[in-house]
């Protein structure tokens, strides 16, 4: 009977994951592997293609080739295009924060926790969750953005002026290793829940109920991985190990953002992202 409950929990979380997130890993992998040939992404690989594609960044539906406005002499200078792109990334991230929040609320027991603790759990888990989800959109050559409608190459991201050019490389390195575990969306739904319900986040008022929920989620994840990946008996341990790497990745990222604030006076962080990053590590 207990395993039936754990399976029901996995099913529930998978369903709310599908409701909360517009681009699943399954869809992203289909696009990246070229299986969606009638829906190939627009590729941004240099400044010219960035300027051509930037108005579609964060569009849910890119106009077809013949309906795209012709690029004329009114192009912004490349530097501005780069900055505007970084701003739209922030807006997409803020939107993703609200998607993750909706997902968190669907985890049984989460909304019954003290409201302060809900804030703490989300604050500390948010960037970890976003990086895990970003891995689904990446391969060694680049990443999907704009709901899978644009593919931006890793080389182009690397060419961004300092320090932006260096910021994505560690995420690619993490993603390539993480993707080797071959988790699917139903595994991810549970893994993200486990990350969110971490009882060791600083400042939690009531640790016990958080740990109790996470314990159930962990048992559900263990069973899920056993059933979904019978040929990888060590997968559960490997997945948990990634949580340590993830914390390091996030703490390095937050440090880079803090450095940015000192060097890039024009760079203003989205207020929601500011809330999350303030006093994080």
């Amino acid at each position: 009977p207990e395993s039936a409950d754990l399976r029901a929990l996995a099913k529930h979380l998978y369903e709310s994951y599908l409701k909360s997130f517009p681009l699943t890993k399954a869809k992203a992998r289909a696009i990246l592997s070229g299986k969606n040939s009638d829906n190939a992404p627009f590729v941004i690989h240099d400044m010219r293609s960035l300027m051509e594609g930037e108005q579609f960044v964060n569009c849910r539906q890119i106009p077809t080739q013949e309906h795209r406005p012709v690029m004329g002499a009114l192009h912004p200078p490349p530097d501005e295009a780069e900055l505007r792109f970084l701003h739209s990334c922030q807006f997409r991230s803020a939107e993703a924060v609200s998607e993750v929040t909706e997902f968190a609320k669907s985890i049984p027991g989460f909304v019954n926790l003290d409201l302060n603790d809900q804030v703490t759990l989300l604050k500390y888990a948010m960037i970890e969750v976003l990086f895990i989800m970003m891995a689904a959109l990446m391969n060694k050559d680049g990443t999907l953005i704009s709901y899978g409608q644009i593919f931006m190459t890793r080389e182009f991201l690397k060419s961004f002026r300092k320090p932006f050019g260096e910021m994505m490389e560690p995420k690619f390195e993490f993603s390539i290793k993480f993707n080797l575990l071959e988790l699917d969306d139903s595994d991810m739904a549970l893994f993200l829940s486990v990350i969110i319900l971490s009882g060791d986040r600083p400042g939690l008022l009531n640790v016990k109920p958080v740990e109790d929920i996470q314990e159930t989620l962990l048992r559900s994840l263990e069973l899920q991985l056993k059933m979904n990946h019978p040929d990888s008996p060590q997968l559960f341990a490997k997945v948990l190990q990634k949580m340590t790497d993830l914390r390091q990745l996030v703490s390095d990222h937050v440090q880079s953002i803090q450095l940015l604030k000192q060097t890039e006076i024009d760079m203003c962080l989205h207020p929601l992202l500011q809330e999350i990053m303030r006093d994080l590590y």
């Binding site: 924060v97 929040t101 703490t120």
Partner: peptide, 21 residues
Amino acid sequence: LKEKHKILHRLLQNSTSPVDL
């Protein structure tokens, strides 16, 4: 903590209506 995280707090309290980001 809620005071320092007003938008996050609002997202948590709002059930389905889209929040102005």
